[in-house]
Design a protein around this nucleic acid. Sequence first.
DNA 1: ATGGTTGTTGGACAA
Length: 265
Amino acid sequence: MKIATWNVNSIKVRLGAVCEWIEKERPDALLLQEIKTTTDAFPRFEIESLGYRCAVLGQRAYNGVAILSPHPIEDVMEGLPGEPADDHARYLEASIGGVRVASIYLPNGNPADSEKYPYKLRWMARLRERVETLLADDVTFVLGGDYNVIPEPRDAYDPAAWVDDALFKLDTRRAWRSIVNLGLTDAFRALEPTATHAYTFWDYQAGAWQRDLGIRIDHLLLSPDAADRLIGCQIDKGPRGAPKASDHTPIWCELSDKVPAGRFA
DNA sequence: ATGGTTGTTGGACAA
């Protein structure tokens, strides 16, 4: 089972690129962020023409997440519990082929001295609570998305330049670790323990892509039993080099079919 | 230090 995540920075501008990528990679689940449109305006027809179904949580102009799959998308949950007044479209969860998946667009949090940063930290605390619930219920899950978190210095081209940024501040990394330390696996780091210059985002400005000045902020976090099935994880830099690209590129992981209890593949 | 870019939207705001 192949599960991918991609911050597309507008599904309307990126529809062609997304359709191409789906046809080439045929993911069992594609988690999208920053679709930047309402649920009604999502280009459902074009996606369904590829044999994919869509679960969408949209919003006008900003944010917006979706889950696409060629399989039935069941038990969809819209929004992250814990702050009823929060109307940002940033979290969508559903079950596909016996795996619970979430498409996550975690708040950026900049400027870090504004009210946006505490909102980010509260959101991460809510995510932690959601993870605790899923673990307590023994759910097999893959939580993918744009976490807007640089987990470690080696995940940035120039970590010193990021120390005061909401994506890398100490409290952000603490909150990230407090989630991962519940027992989750960062799919990319698990399979690429020594990789450097492995990025998923390159700013549009100052030739960041051409100079490979990137950061790794798009992640796939796996439950323990999903991690036991992890057999592949790759950042696909292809789409970032295309004309009219998103500033993010897709990352995917592959889970083996369920292994019988007591056996190892 | 500043400015550099893209998207939504129709002047900023978000990233």
